[in-house]
């Protein structure tokens, strides 16, 4: 698996695949294949892909440690940036297609609907993490500080889940939320379990 991950074409192939959802929306907008409510299809779809890439990014370290696919470490930044990228599309499509780029309406919406506020918080975290993702910034910040900042990705995962849960709660439609919750709590739980084990080993 490390060989596959290190293959010079592996990352370009992933990059192109990761852009497929976007390509389908652009194509669908012109070819009218997005169903009766195309704005909703793009707003919801981009939100779901934000969480999916976020979960993939959170899965990198557990997978690397448990499987020995050490080459995965080089993938984490790209996957995280795709989460930010789809989060940006999510925010822009909501602002444009749902709120007609009316800033005062968006601000009123943040005040009125807690789940919009939570979504905005999630995006803010992803934005900060994306800005601080270049290697030059990592060097400038110093590894320890950078790592502390980037631990907020766990908060982003939980906030994204809350945002999604709250949105779906309106119509009691939790199947997908439950699946994502199991994955996100599983990935965070693995980290908690590992740090607990390490601490015990250090004390022994």
């Amino acid at each position: 698996m490390n060989k596959v991950l290190m293959h010079p074409l592996a990352k370009p192939v992933f990059f192109v695949l990761a852009l497929v959802p976007l390509a389908l929306w652009v194509y669908g907008a012109f070819a009218d294949t997005l169903g009766a409510n195309p704005a909703e299809a793009i707003i919801w779809g981009s939100g779901e892909w934000t969480i999916r890439f976020l979960m993939m990014a959170l899965a990198v370290t557990p997978l690397r440690v448990t499987t020995g696919w050490i080459a995965l470490a080089r993938w984490r930044r790209m996957i995280g940036l795709f989460s930010f990228f789809y989060g940006l599309i999510h925010l822009l499509s909501y602002s444009w297609l749902d709120q007609s780029l009316d800033v005062s309406a968006i601000i009123a919406d943040i005040g009125r609907r807690p789940f919009i506020l939570v979504g905005m918080l999630t995006f803010t975290i992803l934005l900060v993490l994306a800005i601080t993702s270049p290697r030059a910034v990592v060097r400038a910040m110093g590894g320890a500080r950078w790592q502390a900042l980037h631990r907020t990705v766990y908060a982003a995962g939980l906030l994204a889940l809350l945002h999604f849960f709250w949105m779906r709660a309106g119509k009691n439609n939790f199947a997908e939320v439950e699946l994502y919750a199991v994955i996100i709590f599983g990935l965070l739980g693995w980290r908690v379990w590992r740090s607990w084990k390490r601490r015990r080993a250090a004390m022994a």
Binding site: L34, A36, D109, R113, F115, A169
Partner: peptide, 22 residues
């Protein structure tokens, strides 16, 4: 009277395409 999680003051007409105004 808003739904607890979304506003009921406007609506999106279906069938107007991607850029249909609320």
């Amino acid at each position: 009277v808003d739904h607890p999680r979304w506003s009921q003051s406007s609506e999106r007409p279906i069938g107007g395409g991607l850029f249909a105004k609320r």
